[in-house]
Simulated scan of single mutants.
Amino acid sequence: MAVFNITHSNPSTFILMGIPGLEAAHIWISIPFAVFYIIGLLGNFTVLFVVYKEQALHNPMYLLLCMLALTDITTPTFVVPNALCIFWFNLKGITMGSCFTQMFFLHTVSLMHSAILVTMAFDRYVAICNPLRYATILTNARIANLGLVGLIRAVLFILPLPLLLSRQPFCSNRIIPHTQCEHIAVAKMSCGDITVNRTYGLVLFFVVIMSDLTLIALSYGLIMRAVLRLSSKKAHQKALNTCTAHICVMLMYYTPSLFSNLTNRFGQGIAPHIHIILADLYLLIPPMLNPIIYGVKSKELRDKVGKYICRK
């Protein structure tokens, strides 16, 4: 009751409830949350460390992998520590400013992640379809510039979300049935008309994510056309093997993202705790598995990581 009294006495405070309906299981749910988060941090920091230390890995492909690792570190970090405070210590209060800040950074990094996957698809296209010009088309500086463009795009698209919500009047019951300040979950607490917020969020999702998926599909369509023109099966296998890791990472990111967003907006028959668990796993599973996938599929990276492990 103390938590709710604080909420009413401080109108700028929200309450994150965690996973409503599963409060009794919060401690047990926190265990995989913490384990996935720690594994993800260890894997992604390992990738960053090895690429930084090894001069042979200072090329566009591994620079993109480092960008992906950075987003995989920051995305769950914006959510998991706060969620664990809810699960372990029942610390559910969050200020309006902190809530909007979490929303902004969480969605910005998510769009940045999508931009990196598009750039990775373009990288594979150039590597397979124009291998002789790869070094001149994709330099480290050009990859860094593409990353900066992706970041600017994410900031410009996401910034209106918290700005629009900050102008809304909020009801006295400021309880968010979620572990995070997800845009729609916060918007539903408003006493005003949130049609603009809903419309902008939906347009943003379909325009940005669908355009990114279209560019990725186009890249892989051109890759498949080039691969089919190769005469030997060995050449087929080698060309496709360079894309396997990216395809796995891409499917792990976009599949739960599409499912989570669509069910959150249109799946009214799905229990709320299912929405919340899916949204949280979407932020935890890909960051944990991405470095493992690239470690398994990239012999060069695997050998460099093995060198440091054996040295220890």
Rank of each mutant, 00 (worst) to 15 (best):
T195M: 12
V186G: 00
T199S: 14
Q180Y: 13
R198A: 13
T195S: 15
D193K: 04
F206V: 15
R198G: 15
S190R: 07
G201T: 08
T179A: 11
A187Y: 03
V208D: 07
Y200F: 14
R174V: 01
N173A: 13
V207Y: 14
V208C: 09
P177C: 06
T195K: 12
G201S: 14
V186I: 10
E182Q: 14
Y200R: 04
L202G: 09
V208A: 04
V203F: 05
H178A: 04
G192Q: 01
F205E: 01
I176R: 00
F206I: 15
R198K: 15
P177D: 06
D193S: 09
V203H: 03
L204G: 09
R174N: 02
G192K: 00
C191Y: 06
Y200E: 05
L204D: 07
N197F: 00
K188H: 15
F205T: 01
V207A: 13
L202I: 12
H178W: 03
C191L: 07
V196E: 03
R174Y: 02
H178Q: 07
P177G: 07
E182Y: 07
I194H: 05
G192S: 03
I209M: 10
Y200K: 06
H178M: 08
H178N: 10
D193N: 15
I175E: 02
K188I: 14
S190K: 07
Q180C: 11
V203L: 08
G201P: 04
D193R: 06
I184A: 13
R174F: 01
M189S: 09
P177M: 03
D193W: 05
A185K: 02
H178F: 07
I184Q: 12
V196T: 11
I209T: 14
V203D: 02
G201Y: 03
T179S: 10
V196A: 07
S190T: 09
M189N: 12
K188R: 14
A185Q: 05
I209H: 11
C181V: 02
C191V: 05
R198T: 15
L204K: 06
H183T: 13
N173K: 13
V186A: 00
V186T: 02
V207P: 09
P177E: 04
I175M: 07
H183A: 15
T199Y: 10
G201F: 03
C181H: 00
T179P: 05
I194N: 06
V208F: 09
T179F: 06
I175A: 05
V203A: 06
K188F: 13
T179I: 14
A185M: 08
T199P: 08
L204W: 03
A187C: 14
T195E: 10
I209N: 09
P177S: 08
F206S: 13
F206Q: 12
F206E: 10
R174S: 01
L202N: 13
L202R: 12
Y200P: 04
V208I: 12
I194S: 05
N197I: 04
T199G: 11
V208G: 01
L202Y: 11
L204P: 02
A187T: 08
H178E: 05
A187N: 08
V196Q: 04
L202V: 12
H178G: 01
C191E: 10
R174C: 01
I184S: 12
R174L: 02
T199H: 11
G201L: 04
A187Q: 05
L204F: 08
M189G: 06
C191A: 12
F206M: 15
N173V: 12
L204I: 03
Q180L: 12
N197K: 03
V207L: 15
V207H: 10
I175L: 08
M189D: 04
